[in-house]
């Protein structure tokens, strides 16, 4: 009968007297139209198992995507030949003047921490923000978490007590100092040998995770609580921030005192790169351990 009602409406419209629809009626009409809402159509697709069509469409679009990309790769400059557009005056200067301008023997670290230091500053902020995001999601304090978390916490505590971890405990006792030492070596020698703040930081973080898995929360909390985590990461980010904003400000306005580069090759050389490497290493180490601690016990 739907169309007859429409017909009547058209006739009224043609006759020229407009029916004043009451506001409630107009709003209510919108409610009736709810039944063939788009969302019901989507449910229809799932019930009728049409999403197989969806899968084949996706696979076809991905294969077409790969085909187009292979054509692009076919059109790209050759892999590895010297006069590629990428080896232009930008990278030549990084290599040739890199040593005396930044003082870093490892040109990649020199490029990251001196030529393009703004990216690395944004990079350290990405790390810091991801820990803050995970803190936002997973941090549960013992006071007001609901029944389910208490049950999980109790089960973990029991598991922790009875679980015998001889291999890990002995391994951690003897190995962790060397892992941390290795991480510190890589961070400190960032501008001389390959590695640098990021690699060394992750290794140090891994060492702390190894120790935490072996000896559990209480032992780790004596050494590394949330306060020390926040102080270390914020402190090192602040030193990075101060050093770099000083060098950006002085560089841009051609003002101010130049940090000495020292003799290339020994540790205390390459101007600001060593302290920056240490800051980045500390931030990365705290972040990696922070992820582990938040994932296991919901609090650093």
């Amino acid at each position: 009968m739907e169309w007859r009602m429409w017909l009547q409406k058209i006739k009224d419209w043609v006759d020229g007297y407009t029916v004043m629809i009451d506001a409630d009626m107009y709003i209510a009409n919108r409610k009736r139209r709810e039944k063939w809402d788009w969302r019901s159509i989507i449910d229809f697709i799932y019930e009728k198992d049409l999403h197989k069509l969806h899968n084949t469409l996706c696979v076809m679009c991905c294969v077409a995507f790969i085909g187009v990309m292979l054509l692009v790769v076919n059109d790209l400059p050759q892999y590895g030949n010297v006069n590629n557009p990428a080896n232009n005056e930008v990278s030549v200067r990084y290599v040739e003047e890199g040593l005396e301008e930044t003082g870093a023997v490892n040109l990649v670290t020199g490029m990251i921490l001196d030529y393009r230091a703004f990216d690395t500053f944004a990079e350290a902020n990405v790390l810091f923000l991801s820990v803050m995001g995970v803190l936002f999601l997973l941090k549960t304090d013992k006071k007001n978490d609901d029944k389910q978390q208490q049950m999980v916490r109790k089960k973990d505590a029991e598991m922790e007590a009875i679980e015998q971890k001889p291999i890990r405990q002995i391994g951690a006792k003897y190995l962790t100092p060397f892992i941390l030492l290795y991480g510190i070596y890589i961070v400190i020698n960032g501008h001389i040998s390959p590695g640098g703040g990021f690699a060394g930081g992750v290794i140090m973080g891994g060492g702390m995770i190894f120790y935490a898995t072996a000896f559990g929360k209480e032992k780790m909390e004596q050494i590394f609580t949330f306060r020390s985590f926040a102080n270390i990461s914020v402190g090192s980010l602040l030193t990075y921030f101060v050093c770099k904003s000083y060098s950006f400000f002085t560089g841009a306005n051609h003002v101010g005192w130049e940090v000495p580069k020292g003799v290339a090759g020994n540790i205390l050389s390459a101007g600001l790169i060593l302290p920056l490497n240490i800051c980045v290493g500390l931030v990365v180490a705290c972040t990696m351990y922070g992820f582990y601690a938040l994932y296991t016990k919901g609090d650093i």
């Binding site: 990084y94 040739e96 990649v108 490029m111 990216d119 990079e123």
Partner: peptide, 22 residues
């Protein structure tokens, strides 16, 4: 030796290092 033809282009290595940690 600071002649450019001895070494690989350092720029992509720097970018990828940032990318891995991101």
């Amino acid at each position: 030796i600071t002649d450019a033809s001895y070494y690989v282009n350092p720029v992509p290595a720097g970018l990828v290092l940032t990318g891995i940690v991101v």
